[in-house]
Every structure is written in structure tokens, then in C-alpha cells.
Computed example of a mutant assay.
Amino acid sequence: MENNRGEQQSYVGMWVTRDGYVRQALLPNGRYDEARGNRKSAYQGSYTIKGDHIDYVDDTGFTADGEFRDGILYHGGMIFYREK
């Protein structure tokens, strides 16, 4: 599922928008779980990381991608920060 486990592991964790409305958990098993507002698990699926690029495939088959730059995740027109 993941070409370079080290790349994936460096980004595992919770990523949140500044307002906390969207929360995306990148799990160590190559799965993600995204909550929106009060909707837990609004989107779920798998992800792969190569370098600083992330590709998502949700469980319905929808695909998306994003980029990590300077410790920030840019995805779907949103900006995510690693939750501390």
C-alpha cells in the first residue's frame, strides 16, 4: 500500500484546519479518517505518500491529493496543521 514506510510514518497523526472544523487522522496502517464538524468519520479511505505528496482514495473510490510543505498539509483547497 505504501512505497516508503519511513515517508508515511513521518506524517502519521492528526491534521486539523485552523478553525478545527476539519480533522484528518493519518493512521499508521495507511488509512485515514476525516471528521467534519460534528460528523465523525465523514470520509474514510486509504492514502499513500511519496516524498511530500499524498494521494487519497476514499472508500467510495473518490480520489484526491495534497502536498506537505514546511510542516503544513495543503489538501482540497484547505490548509491543515499537525495537532500538537
Rank of each mutant, 00 (worst) to 15 (best):
R69P: 01
Y32A: 04
I54A: 02
I49P: 00
R36Y: 12
A35M: 09
Y21A: 09
I72L: 04
R82H: 12
A64L: 09
G77Y: 02
V12Q: 05
D19Y: 05
W15Y: 05
I49W: 10
Q24H: 12
A64K: 02
Q9R: 11
G77F: 01
G76M: 06
L27A: 09
A42R: 08
R5N: 10
Y47S: 06
R5Q: 15
D55K: 14
G20C: 08
G13L: 01
R23P: 03
G76S: 14
F62L: 09
T60Y: 11
D59H: 07
H75A: 15
F80S: 02
S10R: 14
D33C: 00
R23A: 03
T17I: 00
Y32T: 07
Y81K: 01
Y56A: 04
Y21P: 05
E67W: 11
Y81L: 09
D58L: 04
K50N: 14
K40E: 13
Q9L: 12
D70L: 01
I79A: 00
F68M: 09
D59C: 05
W15T: 00
H75Y: 04
G76N: 10
N3W: 11
N38A: 14
R31G: 02
K50P: 04
R31V: 06
N29R: 09
G61A: 01
G77K: 01
I54P: 01
K50S: 15
R31M: 06
V12T: 07
G61C: 03
Q44G: 07
I72V: 15
D70F: 01
E2R: 03
G61L: 06
D58T: 07
Y47F: 12
I72E: 04
T17M: 05
Q44I: 09
F80W: 00
F80N: 00
L73T: 00
D58M: 02
A42W: 08
G30W: 07
M1T: 14
T17W: 03
N3L: 14
W15E: 06
N4L: 15
P28C: 04
A42L: 08
D33M: 02
K40A: 11
Y43I: 15
M78G: 04
R5Y: 12
Y74L: 11
R18N: 10
G30Q: 09
G51V: 13
R69E: 07
K50M: 15
D65A: 08
G37S: 06
R18E: 12
I49M: 13
T17L: 00
D52I: 12
K40F: 10
N29A: 10
W15F: 10
Y47Q: 05
G45N: 11
Y56D: 13
T63P: 00
Y11I: 15
Y47D: 01
I79P: 05
P28N: 12
A64E: 09
S41H: 08
N38W: 15
R69A: 08
N4P: 06
W15H: 06
G76D: 13
Y47M: 05
G71V: 05
M14Y: 08
D70S: 02
G51N: 11
Y81A: 00
R23K: 09
V12D: 03
K40L: 15
K84M: 11
G66F: 04
G61F: 02
G30L: 04
T17K: 05
D52C: 13
G76K: 01
E7L: 13
D19W: 11
A25E: 14
S41W: 02
K40N: 10
Y21V: 13
Q8P: 06
R82Q: 15
Y21F: 12
Y74F: 12
R31H: 07
I49T: 13
